[in-house]
Design a binder for these strands. Structure first.
Lengths: 255, 255
DNA sequence: CGGCAAGTTGAGCCAGGTCAACTCCGGTGG
DNA sequence: CCACCGGAGTTGACCTGGCTCAACTTGCCG
């Protein structure tokens, strides 16, 4: 924290990614916000909870993945939603009704924003206000989509939807048929209300269908995107996709 | 629509309920917003979709229940979230990625707000801005809670959570142990990702356990709220609540 | 390169989905 | 006022997708 605001902020995606909140601030606003705020680096598993969260309820993500987790009495856990670079998490008033805790799913760099400075900006800087507003609305849409997925879809369909969500939210500098999965299998399971075993079986099935290929645990290469889309959309008659004979020869794909 | 703005608005919960958006406007703001906006009365099943929604993406609810529904290719339907009196639904940019359609679940009175007038107010009236901001954040929390419920909970637990959600969101002028269910069984099913049959069985089970009593299809009388709470929170060892005494010996599980 | 957590695979089982028959209730018309 | 109708809700019997448990393999980090 020995940096001047400028240094500390210039390294942060919230500032240098056009379209993110801090990029829309005037130098004075940025300086003020920066002085009043606290950066932090989280390791997987570290969390903001309780009092710390009440005092710093607004968190901007520069890199990594954070999750909002709910815990049941008997230990069942679920990831209600996750946040990535550029998201501004605003949990003001969330404490009142046990809205879960904020837990890092990977190494993450965040900035805990000063509520006062943030409010001042929201009241005066219309362009920044719109960025934050759009982000919050987008989060809300994503949560709704996710709820709808959880409510109706079967395992394979949820998996397919999740892959599209990863592509939609992930960085755009990947080839179009490559999807990077930012979280672990067990986190995917908790996010989608499934077991890790089911996730694993699902990926295998999609590979056997020739729809995709796992380069490694975090990297999916799409081989038949329309088919995956149809599965995600809940088309039930996907039997004709199965057992594509040439799917067996796909060991080539490493070449 | 032959009313002056004042008449039209004075009847509306968005205006006369303290804490709602329109109650925070200056007379001029209200007049301008009112003139540019359109009230409507919806019957169950009626919807805002497509172009109508793109042109009027902001809807304030005066009474009744609206839902955001998603449809899968094979006809499966789900209710991602629902909105009630006082909610301001802001679906700007939702059209881009098929975020579902807005469908009334009951007779509903709404006001489609002018985007321009709304924006102007959001930019200048801080108090109104905070109301709307809080409402959106609350919607987001509710969606997250709901997603977490769908992900981990079993049928009975989801049902219990839903009842608490109804009480939390419903009007406060009911006796504390009475919960009014604002939607139908089949809508509950679509909201919670279950079948109507399962909902029905769940209610029966809760009645048999002596936890609640259905006065009629829309009215629940709580008889053992702590037990319902425990179920909603996912306590698995609820067998001791059951009527039949032989269930008591389950304490074994603690070793 | 050893140790451990993460992920995968297989076998069996159960909560809740599915299907079909039935009841209940509100509205409508004679 | 009642008989009728259709949709909503309920009940029962059966079936299956995905959970569970346990054994195994893989991959990561020091």
């Amino acid at each position: 924290m020995g940096f001047t605001p400028k240094e500390k902020c210039k390294k942060c995606a919230m500032f240098y990614d056009t379209g993110n909140f801090c990029a829309h601030l005037t130098p004075e606003e940025l300086e003020n916000l920066s002085n009043e705020s606290r950066t932090a680096t989280l390791k997987r598993g570290e969390s903001f909870e309780g009092e710390a969260l009440e005092h710093w309820p607004i968190v901007a993500i520069s890199s990594g993945v954070l999750s909002l987790q709910h815990l049941l009495e008997d230990g069942r856990k679920s990831i209600a939603t996750f946040f990535m670079r550029g998201d501004v998490i605003d949990l003001r008033r969330a404490g009142q009704r046990n809205r879960g805790s904020l837990i890092a799913l990977s190494k993450a760099e965040v900035c805990r924003l000063s509520v006062d400075a943030f409010e001042t900006i929201a009241d005066t800087n219309h362009s920044a206000q719109h960025v934050i507003w759009d982000n919050l609305r987008e989060q809300s849409f994503l949560s709704n989509d996710h709820a709808a997925d959880l409510a109706t879809k079967q395992a394979l369909e949820k998996l397919a939807s999740f892959l599209f969500e990863c592509r939609y939210r992930g960085s755009t500098d990947l080839p179009k048929q490559v999807i990077s999965i930012p979280i672990r299998r067990c986190d995917m399971a908790e996010y989608m209300g499934m077991q890790p075993e089911t996730i694993s079986r699902g990926f295998r099935q999609l590979e056997e269908m020739g729809i995709l290929h796992m380069q490694d645990l975090k990297t999916v290469v799409l081989e038949n995107e329309p088919a995956l889309r149809r599965i995600a959309n809940g088309a039930r008659d996907i039997s004709h996709i199965t057992a594509d004979p040439k799917a067996k020869i796909k060991i080539l794909s490493f070449g």
